[in-house]
Design a binder for these strands. Structure first.
Lengths: 227, 227
DNA sequence: AGACAATGCGAGTCATAGCTCGCAAATTTA
DNA sequence: TAAATTTGCGAGCTATGACTCGCATTGTCT
């Protein structure tokens, strides 16, 4: 007798296995990428490193691009998570303190796996799905914009869109440059870097009294523990 | 009688021909790169586009990397030229005006061949000689640092090295982002962008009296060295 | 247990790209 | 003009890497 169609959704046990294999493959991809670079990261090598056959790899990812794109997505998710958390914590701080913590979060985000991050930035071609490497900033933009909107009163910049773009781009670039290419400058001194960048941004968003005629009259400098 | 060694330096006519061929090859490389992207830019295709044989190509460039590296060098030279000129013109201006003109020069530099610039940024892997893609900033750093040193009196930042790095990185990233990824934001409005960025930088270098926001820096460690 | 589906395997296929090498054309020297 | 040398050519060699496909193993259901 013909049984019910066996093409039924997979068992949860199997689903867990699949999930595990995907994770294993992504981990292997990350390892091979950081150790060998993008050019030498062939799908064969990745599969071998994962202790899996190429065939299996192609059961879970249709092509190499999809594999790398999935890794990029995972990495970006991890970085964004830190920023999201920071934005939550910072919601009620005054602007300067908040920006400081956000910059700190940006640094932490770049330290999540800086070696891998460098490979993404320097070697992975931004084509097709991989164009999403920069899309990190897309999401970041929206989150930061929402925050700045909340703090609108403390900001003396007319166009919030441009302002957000400028701040996000500047902080991202500076954090990237110092974490990836000048790590020695941060060694014992991370706070100094954070302070400088914070000053750059806060000075831009809320220019000093007198520079912008009587817009920001009351300067309430709530102390750090403002929560 | 044995003649003088024929391995004598080439004739000037021939040298011109060689020079011309090199230029032709670089032009073809640029065209293929922007039209097809880095992956599809095979040496065969480049040679064909140049109206030259692959063999000839390899007489002038030992490998593909060298070819692309030469193109990158040429492009960077063109961009740097604009900045150098701007720095000369600006030597006697006051800080704010000077920075404005320098930012304008940065925008112009990115417009030299923005399509090619994008390919370099997004697709050409930074490996071996090609690592020099970012080296543009190296030279820029020195030139800008020298200028800031001249204007030391107008600048209230302690460490000039950090300050230069921050300014150069920020301006480069912002210019790049807006020219390459948000050109519509500059269309009729280039001056507005330039003004914003200038304000960002000038406000950082020469913060208004009393407006220096207190930077919230928990666990701040006193230290002297550069960032 | 037995049968059938799902998952895993990896040697092998196919395509492409970097690069070479022997010959031809052009240019120079005497 | 004839020999010598440089420059240009492009078919083809070699290596490599993305991806496939038929078989083996594992797992599930009755």
């Amino acid at each position: 007798m013909a049984r019910a169609i066996p093409t039924t959704p997979r068992k949860s046990a199997t689903q867990k296995r699949s999930q595990a294999m995907v994770e294993t493959l992504l981990d292997a991809t990350a390892r091979v990428l950081t150790r060998e670079g993008y050019d030498r990261a062939s799908t064969n090598r990745i599969a071998a490193t994962a202790g899996v056959s190429v065939g299996s790899l192609y059961q879970y990812f249709p092509n190499k691009e999809a594999l790398v794109a999935a890794l990029v997505a995972r990495h970006n998710r991890q970085m964004l998570e830190l920023l999201r958390d920071a934005l939550k914590e910072v919601a009620s701080f005054d602007l300067a303190t908040a920006i400081g913590e956000l910059v700190r979060a940006a640094v932490d985000a770049h330290l999540v796996d800086s070696a891998l991050h460098r490979i993404f930035a320097e070697q992975v071609p931004r084509l097709g799905q991989l164009a999403k490497i920069d899309a990190l900033q897309q999401e970041t933009f929206l989150m930061v914009r929402a925050y700045l909107e909340e703090r609108r009163a403390e900001i003396s910049v007319p166009d919030l869109d441009s302002a957000t773009a400028i701040c996000v781009t500047a902080v991202e670039a500076l954090t990237h440059e110092f974490v990836i290419n000048r790590p020695e400058a941060l060694d014992g001194d991370r706070d100094r870097f954070i302070g400088e960048v914070t000053r750059l941004i806060v000075g831009y968003l809320r220019p000093a009294d007198g520079a912008t005629p009587r817009v920001a009259a009351p300067r309430r400098r709530a102390r750090t523990g403002g929560l």
